[in-house]
Design a protein around this nucleic acid. Structure first.
Lengths: 97, 97
DNA sequence: ATTCTATTTGGTGATTTTGCCAATCATAAT
DNA sequence: ATTATGATTGGCAAAATCACCAAATAGAAT
């Protein structure tokens, strides 16, 4: 792989890495039709809130979700609904419902 | 997350993990319209052949590619072309060409 | 049977990712 | 100004991933 190709595929891989964690996939499904708070998500998943915050940060940095502040609450929502399309496509084909 | 949900999202995450590496994405593109040998792929990417073999194994285990033996060569090809669709969709939307 | 080529497997150190705790920051309420 | 609540950040240990080397396997050819 030459340098350009190398960079191209590394960037693409970054996106898959951002999605490659059960908690982060759960978050995507949770915020797909309902704006949610960090605390709510944390409770649903059952992990430390600092861990949740870091997962949210990863998704945010890749522009997969968006956070909006109101008072001192931060509401998260799905930024690119298309993510759901290719996720369900992937799952159907690879046969995990 | 209860146990079932946990398992569901872990399984889904496994697929994204399988795709979350530049070399493995490169392999998918390389075999999408041309059946290829391990050695050929190794040369193209420029890594140790044992490393390549392990990457191929990961894709194989997730049924993303298929290997067929002829003599003592193993030819790899893309098993689920749909992977390309959702990859290009993902990339377009997330704005990495 | 031995040798040769293609590929896989085992092992190990290096790097990355993950998750918790503690500390900090941001905003609101008193 | 102090306190309280929601969220993020820094640090560290545990776990997972990665890449190389060396050794093993599979099959073909001699």
């Amino acid at each position: 792989m030459n340098k350009d190709i190398e960079i191209e595929f590394s960037e693409k891989a970054e996106i898959f890495k951002a999605l490659a964690h059960p908690t982060r996939l759960f978050i995507i499904h949770a915020v797909k039709d309902k704006i949610m708070l960090v605390k709510e998500l944390t409770k649903l998943v059952g992990i430390d809130i600092s861990t949740m915050s870091k997962h949210l940060d990863i998704l945010k940095r890749h522009k997969i979700i968006e956070g909006k502040r109101n008072k001192n609450f931060i509401y998260y929502r799905l930024a690119i609904p298309c993510v759901l399309d290719f996720m369900s496509c992937a799952m159907k084909v690879i046969s995990k419902k």
